[in-house]
Amino acid sequence: MAELCVRSVLVTGANRGIGLGLIQHFLRMPTPPQWVFAGCRAPQRAQELRNLASKHSNLVIVPLEVADPASIKAAAVSVGERLAGSGLNLLINNAGISKINSIDTETLEDMTQVYTTNTVGPLLLGQSFLPLLKKAAQESPGSGLSCSKAAIINMSSSAGSIKDVYVWELAHVISYRCSKAALNMLSKCQSLAYREHGILCVAFHPGWVQTDMGGSGSYKPPLTVDASVGGMLKVLSSLSEKETGTFLDWEGKVVPW
């Protein structure tokens, strides 16, 4: 299996959970990226990230609120300045929120907030970082697609699978499910629109992971952050043009739409 080899990566929602786990794994790689950008809403409160940044000169904490278009544009400018003419290989849209509502208690306010963060955010991030992703693809030799060249990874969930309706009996989370189903369609659309630019796009189900969001109910999720992230990075290293526009889990299995 080829090793994932990227010069630069941006992870959103990087202050905790899966996002923080991704940052830690990238920094521990035998050949770590030259630039690891960790996007988070409140850098001043992201103590674990700050501790890592004090030990790793290639880690840059980027203020980023994915529900705010101005914040996204400012982050793109900041990252572009750091890259100094080079492209961004990997954009991982990991930031997400959930509201514990049933179909009877769901509200316009919660639905809009969750959809804006989980679906519109990744759309706007793709738009703003497209020039840097295109630059990375142009810098990479070869005609095929890969995560080492240029890719957008959207962190989805089997909860957004219309066929499976994952763990419905445990949590209805209507706005979350709808936002992730929409994110899956966005991933497909991005794969079609950005393929000509040499950019691979996939949606990922990281598994049911032991995080603040995933473990907020009465059931303990079966997966650790370390196991989920390690599995996803192995899968990312092997992706090619055949997988662009697909919905995969942390073990590389296809998840039904």
Rank of each mutant, 00 (worst) to 15 (best):
I97K: 01
I97A: 11
I97M: 13
K99F: 09
K99G: 12
K99M: 08
I100E: 07
I100T: 12
I100G: 10
N101D: 11
N101Y: 06
I103Q: 15
I103C: 10
I103T: 15
D104N: 05
D104E: 04
T105N: 12
E106H: 10
T107H: 05
D110Y: 01
D110F: 02
D110C: 02
T112W: 02
V114G: 00
Y115E: 13
T117N: 00
N118S: 03
N118T: 02
T119E: 01
V120D: 04
V120G: 02
G121E: 00
P122S: 02
P122R: 01
L123W: 07
L123R: 03
L123Y: 06
L124C: 06
L125Y: 03
G126D: 02
G126H: 01
Q127F: 11
Q127W: 06
S128R: 03
F129V: 09
L130M: 15
L130S: 15
P131D: 06
L133P: 08
K134N: 11
K135A: 11
K135N: 14
K135G: 08
A136G: 07
E139P: 15
E139M: 07
E139Y: 04
S140F: 13
S140H: 14
S140C: 08
G142Q: 05
S143T: 12
S143R: 08
S143L: 07
S143H: 09
S143N: 15
S146T: 04
S148I: 09
K149S: 10
K149A: 08
K149C: 09
K149R: 14
A150Q: 13
A151M: 07
I152G: 00
M155I: 15
S156G: 13
S156R: 04
S158A: 13
A159F: 15
A159T: 11
A159G: 12
G160R: 00
G160F: 02
G160H: 03
I162Y: 11
I162L: 08
K163M: 11
D164L: 11
D164K: 08
Y166R: 08
Y166Q: 11
V167S: 05
E169K: 10
L170R: 07
V173M: 04
I174T: 12
S175F: 00
R177G: 02
R177L: 01
R177V: 07
K180P: 05
L183D: 01
M185F: 05
L186D: 00
S187H: 01
S187D: 05
K188D: 07
K188R: 14
S191R: 02
S191P: 13
L192G: 05
Y194Q: 05
Y194P: 08
R195L: 09
H197C: 14
G198N: 01
G198P: 08
C201T: 13
V202D: 05
V202I: 10
V202E: 11
F204W: 12
F204A: 11
F204T: 08
F204P: 04
F204D: 13
H205M: 06
P206K: 10
P206A: 10
W208S: 09
W208A: 11
W208N: 12
V209L: 11
T211N: 06
G215E: 07
G215Q: 06
G215M: 06
S216G: 07
S216Q: 13
G217L: 13
G217P: 06
G217M: 09
S218K: 09
Y219M: 15
P221I: 10
P221C: 09
P222F: 14
